[in-house]
Design a protein around this nucleic acid. Structure first.
Lengths: 157, 157
DNA sequence: CGCTATGTTCAGTACATACTGAATATTATG
DNA sequence: CATAATATTCAGTATGTACTGAACATAGCG
């Protein structure tokens, strides 16, 4: 437990890099997200998080808002406490990915508009149609995504 | 044809914004990509593209390399010409999306490593497992993606 | 009503990115 | 090989982003 901390922090670094690279999340927000995915207890205060990853509290304020807006993190207050507690729900990533795919569908509309502009020449609309079809497929595929982990779901108190 | 140009450029702006926002592509590269998706003829030189979207040739050099590396654009040379011609293939977006999902699968490995670190406590591994499952599902879903536009494919000379 | 612990906002700084003009390389042609 | 056209690289600038310390706000508690 005591020596684990170092390995956990190493893991947090890796995961954070992934989040920043693939999800356009700033470095510190990436660390926060990664930390909240593996920390114990799952719900932690801004102070705890800041100390764990070595960031200022000011950064935490902005990072937490970003992560909450993005759908990764939820904030909870306990009765008779001013401290806010943050956590990533089990369905956080599914929610975020779904939201992202939904946003991608906007490109489907753009390509559709482009095809109208390009006219009826199939040589000219081919590129647009192919792109359109990809995003159309994605949208439908994710609509039929089987909500994973619906069974032995382990939510603790 | 002559008045279309303006509407086309407007469309290019929209599509470019999407590319920059959702695919982390710099503004000019986004315009290049959008332009190459609707321009006629489909294959154009750097000079033509630069003039169309109003960018310097220096920017074109870097933008083209970026787009080629990302898999969006292909470069071709014609015999007895020093000019390079660029185009987006019909399967460009499918290729890029596939590549991106493949990259996302790396996170599956990270979450797997995280679960080992977190031990066997299901209360602690729940978040990691849920994330893992999402990316696992994505990987498999895209593996079985039916290459769209496999039939009346219209590739011109 | 102070007091204290937590949360948020703001100005400033450090760093990174995007883009361009000018200089340099490269390649077909006469 | 000289010439002209395209391509690439580089230094410089301008803009934007991430982060922090410090100041300010807020909420529970004696």
């Amino acid at each position: 437990m005591t020596d684990d901390r170092e390995r956990v922090l190493e893991w947090v670094e890796q995961a954070a890099v992934f989040c920043t690279d693939e999800y356009a999340v700033p470095p510190i927000a990436g660390r926060v997200l990664a930390w909240l995915m593996i920390c114990e207890p799952a719900e932690q205060s801004a102070g705890q998080i800041a100390e764990a990853i070595g960031a200022s509290r000011a950064s935490l304020a902005t990072s937490m808002r970003l992560l909450i807006d993005a759908g990764f993190v939820r904030r909870r207050t306990r009765p008779g406490q001013k401290t806010h507690y943050y956590r990533v729900d089990d369905d956080a990533w599914e929610r975020v990915v779904r939201r992202r795919v939904a946003g991608l569908a906007a490109f489907r509309e753009i390509t559709a508009a482009g095809m109208q502009l390009a006219g009826s020449d199939p040589a000219r609309t081919g590129r647009l149609r192919a792109a359109h079809d990809v995003f159309d497929w994605m949208d439908k595929a994710f609509a039929s995504m089987p909500g994973p982990r619906r069974e032995g779901d382990t939510d603790e108190a």
